[in-house]
């Protein structure tokens, strides 16, 4: 049986990068899926379901990350995560943006 996989590249665009709050949002969403989800920055590759690993990416604004999901729900999981990156983790710790997404 073939395992569905889904892979996408995202750029961290929110101001403070992947700090505690965005990492926890990623882990929460990733945790809803059965599939394995990994996030890679250069040579560092971490489990998207754990905040503690995500933090160690130390991914500031502008960092390019690779999302890779393998298993059931891979496509949907990656789509949702990409949407979160694109919305700059809307309910971040910083107040909502006064301007529209740029």
């Amino acid at each position: 049986m073939s395992n569905p996989t889904s892979q996408r590249t995202v750029v961290v665009s929110n101001e403070n990068g992947l700090h505690l709050v965005p990492c926890s949002q990623i882990a929460r969403v990733a945790g809803e899926y059965e599939c394995e989800i990994r996030i890679r920055k250069e040579s560092i590759d971490v489990d998207a379901k754990t905040v503690l690993e995500l933090i160690t990416l130390n991914a500031g604004q502008g960092t390019t990350l690779e999302l890779l999901a393998t298993g059931e729900g891979a496509d949907e999981a990656v789509d949702r995560l990409v949407a979160m990156f694109e919305s700059d983790f809307e309910v971040g710790e910083t107040p909502e943006r006064a301007t529209g997404p740029s």
Binding site: L20, S24, A27, V51, E93, P95
Partner: peptide, 21 residues
């Protein structure tokens, strides 16, 4: 205070449910 401040605790909660931890 607003949801951006609530989110700080959302993060704490997620940490305490972190499977690695």
């Amino acid at each position: 205070l607003g949801k951006q401040y609530g989110a700080i605790f959302g993060a704490h909660l997620q940490l305490l449910r972190d499977k690695k931890l």
